[in-house]
Structure formats: C-alpha cells, structure tokens
Design a protein around this nucleic acid. Sequence first.
DNA 1: TTGGCATGAGACAAATATGTCTCATTTGAG
DNA 2: CTCAAATGAGACATATTTGTCTCATGCCAA
Lengths: 191, 191
Amino acid sequence: MPNPLRPSTRDAIVEAAFDVLSRDPSAALAQVAERAGVGRATLHRHFATREALIRALALTAIEEMDAAAEAACADARSYEDAFRRMLTVLIPLGDRHGFLSREPVDDDPEIAAEFQRQMDETREMVEGAKAEGLFDPAVPTAWITQAFDHLLYAAWESVRAGEATHAQAADLAWRTLTHGLGTGGAERKRP
Amino acid sequence: MPNPLRPSTRDAIVEAAFDVLSRDPSAALAQVAERAGVGRATLHRHFATREALIRALALTAIEEMDAAAEAACADARSYEDAFRRMLTVLIPLGDRHGFLSREPVDDDPEIAAEFQRQMDETREMVEGAKAEGLFDPAVPTAWITQAFDHLLYAAWESVRAGEATHAQAADLAWRTLTHGLGTGGAERKRP
DNA sequence: TTGGCATGAGACAAATATGTCTCATTTGAG
DNA sequence: CTCAAATGAGACATATTTGTCTCATGCCAA
C-alpha cells in the first residue's frame, strides 16, 4: 500500500527545481533531475511536462508565502505589527521564489486565482493599516502595495549583495515604507 | 560609397529586438527578424550571434540611460532637482530596458565597466544629495540607491498596470523615497 | 548602363531540450 | 521469501533554435 506521507522523491524534485531554476530559469530539466538525485525519466513520471513542474513550483511558493504571512499575522497586535513581521519573514523567500515572477504562470486559472486572492488579502491589510493611521489615506492603496512589494525586493537584493544583514535590510525597508507613506507625524519624537 | 549615417537596417533590428525581447526574453531571433522586417540571414550579418545582439542592446540601453540622465541633470539646480528629474525621465525606459536585468550581460567586461560607472555616478549623486540635506546621512548610500532603483521600477509597473499616470507614479515614488529617507523635518509644513 | 553591395529566401547541419519508451534493478509490504 | 511498484539508465523520435551557406534580386552610384 502506497504511503501518502512519503512523497520524498517528488519533494526532492521540487526542492531541486527551486534550487536550480532560481539560479538559471532556463536550465534544462536534466539539471533539475541531477540535482534531485533522480533520473530524468523519474522526473517526468512525477511532472509530465516542464510546464507542470513550474505550476507545481508556483503553487508551492504560494503555500509557503501563505504560511509565512499567517505566521506573521498570527500573534500580531495591529496591522502595523503584521506588516512589520511580514516584511521580515518574506525577505528570505526572495531567493527561492523570485524567478517565478518571470514565468508565464498567469495562464493557469488556478494560479491566477491564488495570486488574486493574495493580492486581495494584501489590499485588505493596507486598508486596515490606513484605518489605524499607519498609511496616509490619500495615497492609493495600489501604490502602497507596489511600494511594499518592491521595497521587499530591494531588501532581499540588498542582503544578497552583502550590503546589509537580514535585520538591517528589514529595518531600512520598513523605515522607507512607513516614513514615506505615513500620515506625517506618527514617527515624530515626543519632546 | 557606404553612407555611415544610414545604418537603418541595423537600427531596425535593434529596435525590433527591444520590442520583441522585452515581451518575451526567450523569443527566437526569427521573431526579431520578422518584427524588423528583415530576413534572418540579414540579422546574422549584423549580429553574428544572439549574444552579440544582446550585448548591442545592453550598450544601447546604457547610452539611452546616460542621455536621459544627462538631460535631467543638465539644467538641475540641485541634487534634489536632479533626482526628481531623473525619476521622471527614467520611468518610460523600464518597458524598453527591464528585460536586460535578467540577461547574463555582466560577463562582458565592457558592459560590466559601464554598469560600474553608472553605479558610481549614482552614488556620487546620492552623496551630494546627502550633503544637501535631502537624504539622512545615517542611511547607507547603498540602500538609497537600491530604494531609488526599486521605487523607479515600482513606478514603471504602476503605470504599466494602469494604476497611475506617468506623472502620478513619479510623484508617489518621489514622496516615498524622500519622506522615507529624509532628514526628518524637511517636508514639514511651516506653522 | 554597369558593377558592387546589401538584402531576401531558403536549404542545411549541428546543438539542445523535451517527452516517450524499454528493460533491468531496487525497495518495501505482505 | 515473493511480488508489485518505483526507480535508474539509456535509447529514441521530435521539435526548436542557432548559425552557415548559396543564389537570385533590387538598388545606388559612377
């Protein structure tokens, strides 16, 4: 009887694919199989086509981001707290998931739906944070989302380039985001 | 006698390559040739290999960014003014040059040197702006550069997504950058 | 007109990636 | 131990891309 809790081969392939494709998005599946320590035929037994493998990677990435976001929000005392925690936990995922943004995964309706759902959740958080006074209500929510995403990316790249530690980059991105989009007095020192 | 002022075929190929490859970085050269309205053989007469074409695109992009930056700085009255103008003129180049960041052009020493030179120029501008009081001297110059680059990218994407006009996106990116990295009181309203 | 030159069209070989298939071996449950 | 499922190795066909080559055509200048 096949053990449903032992898909180790499949997991190894997914892991190897993240590893290899994040370094070279056009790498051949043979490299992925080699990195996973399995034969190329076995890879195709688990993922019929390259497209199917990429789709599995995208779904895995979404799961991982959900898990990270949920963990960050779990014991957050406010939207501000939640955003600050999310920034920290999402930075390390850049290496792993970054290359997927250059893959045409939006064609798949399931992936597109999940993306939309995450976008909506982020928008809700931004609006909650606006109500809290963290962000200026006059700034479009769409821009706050863009700025969050790209400053997150900047932080990841800063760490990757050795310009800052994980904690330093998170602090800098946070400062840039909040002081830039704040209501204008929240961060002022009390005299 | 060959007219040195009429490399129209070569220009058409470069233009088509920007057009096609920015939409699909893995597009075949046949698509580039077709878009340029030339035969595939002619493309190879001008650019022996795909790599040579990409290199030409990178050099063209660097030239265009230099020209845009120079125009922005030409009649700038301060570093702050120069940064604000550069933000505006560089946003439209995102569509055209963005895909090059995912090409392994750094292998070419000439390209790498040009990149380094542009980085150095940006760093000098950041330090000048720090001395002017635009940026907090306590914030690492490397982070200011990263934030500028990525907020520029965010602005471009915002325009592309139809979330904002060119001018609106530039304003939002500028606000995010300066109020976030400012000395802390420059933008405060005088009572 | 004539001659050189760039081009277009297409054939061609080589390299690479993909997906399928077969067969021998291993592994784990019964 | 025995058997079925999973796997590894490798052959195989196919498709795609790349780069080269040839030949006929159009164009511009002398």
